[in-house]
């Protein structure tokens, strides 16, 4: 059994960057910190292998925060205890055939594999409410499009690299568009506005495909 340790990198005078082994540990530390917020905590940003912790240097310090982190109880949830969001998708995206060609799969098989797995929100970024979902079938992993679109419609369900995601608002984007959903994943008048936050599990359900189903 390995010894338990935290790897803390300096990040200016009001933040630390904690390096962790994997996403599971990132989400566990994030949840623990949210459940037991220390004095002076300003913001926490989970990412693929790190947790950025911003603090108020007038209230706490790197030493005190690091000491606090080391004492936090590990209360991670098992997979079936975390919230699950189902997103109905109409698989009629403009890149579905290109993805099929690039992966050597049929379009039906691309859809089957994309909808056949449970994802986890790893982190957000790029745009408010844009969640990077891990758990993508490795056969569907493709680099981003060489020429990003200047406008991707809101609700587009897409893949790139090891991730899947849903564009919460229309805007530029370089991911491969497999379909779209009417689910509202970002609503400023809702609390919280983002439906997908780190740790949430996501399943895509097939609502139709190109008029064929």
């Amino acid at each position: 059994m390995r010894t338990s340790e935290l790897h803390v990198l300096p990040c200016g005078d009001h933040a630390i960057l904690v390096e962790l082994d994997d996403l599971e540990d990132v989400l566990a530390l994030n949840a623990a910190l949210r459940g037991h917020e220390p004095a002076g905590l300003v913001d926490v940003v989970p990412a693929a292998e790190t947790l950025l912790i911003m603090f108020d240097p007038g209230v706490t310090s790197v030493e005190r925060l690091t000491d606090y982190l080391a004492r936090l109880p590990d209360e991670r949830l098992t997979a079936d205890e975390t919230p699950l969001v189902e997103i109905p998708v109409r698989y009629d995206g403009p890149d579905l055939d290109a993805v099929a060609e690039a992966t050597g799969l049929s379009a039906d098989e691309v859809v089957r594999r994309h909808a056949g797995t449970t994802y986890t929100v790893a982190f957000t970024g790029f745009a408010p409410g844009f969640a990077y979902l891990t758990g993508l079938d490795p056969r569907l992993a493709l680099p981003r499009r060489e020429n990003p679109r200047t406008r991707v419609p809101a609700g587009s369900v897409a893949i790139a690299d090891r991730y899947s995601g849903v564009y919460p608002r229309s805007g530029p984007g370089g991911w491969h568009l497999l379909g779209h959903t009417d689910a509202v994943l970002w609503d400023l008048d809702r609390t919280p506005p983002a439906a997908l936050v780190p740790g949430t599990r996501v399943r895509f359900t097939v609502r139709g495909r190109d008029g064929r189903r």
Binding site: M1, R2, T3, S4, E5, L6, H7, V8, L9, P10, D13, I16, L20, D21, E24, D25, A28, L29, P57, S61, V62, E63, R64, T66, L69, A70, R71, L72, P73, D74, E75, R76, T78, A79
Partner: peptide, 26 residues
């Protein structure tokens, strides 16, 4: 240089009970 209280870098031993590298469940 980091002011007092700003620094870090390198591993920090976690107190017993913190198991960021050893899941309790699952």
């Amino acid at each position: 240089a980091p002011a007092a209280g700003v620094g870090g870098g390198g591993p920090v031993a976690a107190a017993s009970g913190a198991r960021w590298r050893r899941p309790l469940r699952g």
